[in-house]
Amino acid sequence: MNAASESALCPSAVNHQSLRVLAQWLKHYGSKPVRTTDPRRLLAGRYPQGLISEAEMQALMAVWH
């Protein structure tokens, strides 16, 4: 391994502000239970808005059913 990739694996090389923002997002959204059987709402509640396009959502719904 080279030094650049080794530093990327080191926990101290991680930006602490980014970790704090991620932890807050997970605390707010990550543990929120989705109490529905509607797969579209389930996926929308699980992933951040904009991560899955409408075309991808349609493909996932086709696989789901």
Rank of each mutant, 00 (worst) to 15 (best):
P11W: 00
S31H: 15
G45V: 01
L60P: 00
S18H: 12
R41Y: 02
L43W: 01
P48F: 00
W25G: 13
G50K: 07
S18L: 10
L43I: 14
S18R: 15
L19S: 11
Q58Y: 04
R41P: 04
V21W: 06
V63F: 02
H65R: 12
V21K: 14
Y29N: 15
A3L: 12
T37L: 07
Y47H: 11
M1Q: 14
W25D: 12
A44Y: 00
V14F: 02
P39W: 00
R46H: 10
N15L: 04
C10S: 11
W64R: 13
L43C: 06
Q49N: 12
H16E: 09
S12G: 05
S31R: 15
K27M: 08
S53C: 02
V34G: 11
C10Q: 10
Q24F: 03
R20P: 01
R40G: 04
P33G: 06
Q58T: 13
P33C: 05
K32N: 14
M1W: 08
N15P: 05
L26D: 08
S31W: 08
R41N: 12
T37V: 11
T36W: 01
L43E: 00
L22T: 13
H65P: 05
K32I: 12
M1G: 15
Q49C: 10
A8E: 03
P48I: 00
Y47A: 09
H28L: 12
R20I: 05
A55T: 06
R41S: 12
S53H: 05
P33N: 10
H16L: 06
A23W: 04
T36E: 00
H16Q: 14
L60G: 01
R35F: 04
S7G: 08
A23G: 11
K27R: 14
K32Q: 14
P33E: 02
T37A: 08
G30M: 07
H28C: 13
R35E: 03
L22H: 11
V34I: 15
Q24W: 03
A13T: 10
G30T: 12
A23T: 14
P33S: 08
H65A: 08
R20D: 05
W25R: 15
H65I: 04
K32C: 10
H65M: 04
R20E: 04
M57S: 02
Y29T: 15
I52V: 08
E54W: 04
G45T: 05
L19W: 03
I52R: 00
S53M: 00
M61Y: 03
G45C: 02
S53T: 07
V34H: 10
A8I: 09
G50T: 07
L43R: 09
R40N: 06
R46F: 04
L42W: 01
Q58P: 03
R40W: 00
H28G: 11
E54D: 07
A44K: 09
T37G: 11
E56N: 13
L26W: 11
A59V: 10
P33H: 06
P48Q: 04
H16F: 03
A3D: 09
P11A: 05
L9D: 07
Q24T: 14
N2K: 14
R46P: 03
E6G: 13
E6T: 15
Q17W: 05
Q17E: 09
E54N: 11
L42E: 00
M1S: 14
A13G: 10
A4Q: 13
G30K: 11
S53N: 04
H28P: 06
G45W: 00
S12Q: 08
L60A: 06
Q58N: 12
E54S: 08
V21E: 07
T36P: 01
R20N: 10
C10F: 02
P39V: 01
